[in-house]
Amino acid sequence: DVEPGKFYKGVVTRIEKYGAFINLNEQVRGLLRPRDMISLRLENLNVGDEIIVQAIDVRPEKREIDFKYIP
């Protein structure tokens, strides 16, 4: 289970104008929005990159997770 405030290693699987989709595993995916990136820009991410993200909002009923990147 993903818990708000905890850090997780994930893989960038898709990049859109509104953010990057990060997979923690095959069943768990969330969104990293540009506003939640500190010292990292969306255009510097590539599909396949491994990054450490912090879960900031977890909505299991909608199967949605918002992430934050903190270097």
Score class of each variant (00 low, 15 high):
27 Q>G: 12
52 I>G: 03
19 G>I: 03
32 L>H: 01
50 E>P: 12
6 K>N: 10
19 G>M: 04
33 R>C: 03
41 R>W: 09
15 I>H: 01
17 K>T: 13
37 M>A: 06
44 N>F: 11
60 P>C: 07
38 I>V: 13
13 T>K: 07
21 F>S: 03
58 V>K: 05
24 L>M: 04
9 K>P: 06
51 I>W: 01
34 P>Y: 08
50 E>S: 15
32 L>P: 01
44 N>T: 11
17 K>P: 15
31 L>F: 08
18 Y>F: 13
1 D>A: 15
69 Y>Q: 05
53 V>I: 08
68 K>E: 05
10 G>Y: 02
52 I>R: 09
6 K>P: 03
3 E>C: 10
39 S>P: 15
67 F>C: 03
57 D>C: 10
22 I>D: 00
10 G>K: 00
48 G>Q: 04
33 R>G: 02
70 I>F: 13
29 R>K: 11
21 F>W: 15
49 D>K: 05
3 E>I: 15
12 V>G: 00
67 F>T: 02
42 L>V: 07
6 K>S: 09
2 V>D: 03
3 E>G: 06
56 I>G: 07
59 R>M: 04
18 Y>H: 07
33 R>L: 04
37 M>Y: 02
35 R>Q: 12
25 N>M: 05
63 R>Y: 12
56 I>N: 05
3 E>D: 08
20 A>E: 00
38 I>A: 11
12 V>C: 03
13 T>V: 11
57 D>V: 13
69 Y>C: 03
30 G>N: 01
32 L>D: 01
23 N>F: 09
48 G>R: 04
19 G>L: 03
47 V>Y: 06
60 P>L: 11
16 E>N: 09
26 E>M: 13
70 I>R: 08
14 R>D: 04
4 P>Q: 12
52 I>D: 05
46 N>M: 14
33 R>F: 03
50 E>G: 12
16 E>V: 14
71 P>G: 11
36 D>R: 04
10 G>S: 02
27 Q>M: 14
46 N>F: 15
37 M>P: 02
34 P>F: 08
52 I>T: 12
6 K>F: 09
36 D>K: 04
10 G>I: 03
59 R>T: 05
50 E>T: 15
55 A>K: 03
29 R>S: 13
51 I>L: 13
51 I>E: 00
23 N>P: 00
55 A>R: 04
58 V>I: 10
28 V>K: 05
21 F>P: 00
37 M>K: 02
31 L>E: 01
18 Y>G: 05
18 Y>T: 05
42 L>M: 08
34 P>L: 11
15 I>N: 00
3 E>R: 12
63 R>I: 07
35 R>W: 09
57 D>E: 14
63 R>C: 10
45 L>F: 05
17 K>Q: 12
36 D>C: 07
41 R>V: 11
11 V>E: 06
54 Q>M: 15
29 R>G: 11
67 F>A: 01
36 D>T: 03
13 T>R: 06
70 I>P: 04
69 Y>T: 03
46 N>L: 14
66 D>H: 09
